[in-house]
Design a protein around this nucleic acid. Structure first.
Lengths: 119, 119
DNA sequence: GGAGGATATCGACGATTGTCGATGTTCAGT
DNA sequence: ACTGAACATCGACAATCGTCGATATCCTCC
């Protein structure tokens, strides 16, 4: 069975669909599939909150321990959401000691935004 | 059972979450829920293709009969997706004779885009 | 008013998703 | 080495989603 999470180590799929303005010409099947995968990663309340918390932290990075309590979900669930966001290219992960720090990929949201509206 | 489609006649939820830059400050639970609903409407290959076909038609509108064959799905399924897009505020529906024409709401995508990146 | 065409709704089905508890893994300090 | 802490993975479960065929609704034209 092929699950979405198998693309985890692709290190971000946001940039792969490039410069195809949604409103200008019809999307191909592949373009639509790619963009849908990226948007699906964003289309969840918990992930949106996690992303916004990371984005508004100093250095635009935060460790998992600081994210669990604000979103009010279990640690495995938070870990899962962070993995999805990372696989989609919105976050990067770096481990320092026992802690895992997730940092925002600044251009990622902008690229999605550019795909929706014209470039 | 409460389904997502019961909000069909809300005539668009895109504008309701206003001016909350995702990257500036953490989203509240309600803001995240709203934005997630809107993004979920977008996060499907078939709907993205339908939206882009409508958007790139003359007058940015198209009737259902012209949409079925390009996306390669059954008529009920296309109808369903158009309803979701309309409920989310990306399309409007107007019936002329036997035909139903769906037209792009031009500002809708821009508002979502503005929510993702800074205003 | 009956027939046929365009679209919407309904009911059902398999597939995917979000969530959790339990467990595994890796690292720091003693 | 052992313990405890931080995080990831696993397996399971309920809920949601995308899709279809069948059917209902609405309109036009003869």
């Amino acid at each position: 069975m092929v699950t979405m999470l198998e693309v985890t180590d692709i290190t971000g799929a946001v940039g792969e669909v490039c410069c195809a303005p949604l409103v200008k010409e019809p999307l191909s099947q592949q373009e639509a599939d790619q963009l849908a995968v990226t948007l699906k990663a964003l289309a969840d309340p918990a992930r949106l909150r996690l992303l916004s918390i990371v984005a508004s932290s100093e250095g635009q990075e935060a460790c998992v321990c600081d994210l669990i309590e604000p979103v009010g979900l279990s640690q495995p669930t938070v870990s899962h959401h962070l993995k999805v966001l990372t696989a989609a290219g919105f976050l990067t992960r770096s481990k320092r000691g026992t802690w895992a720090y997730y940092r925002l990929v600044p251009e990622a949201l902008g690229q999605v935004s550019a795909l929706l509206v014209g470039a």
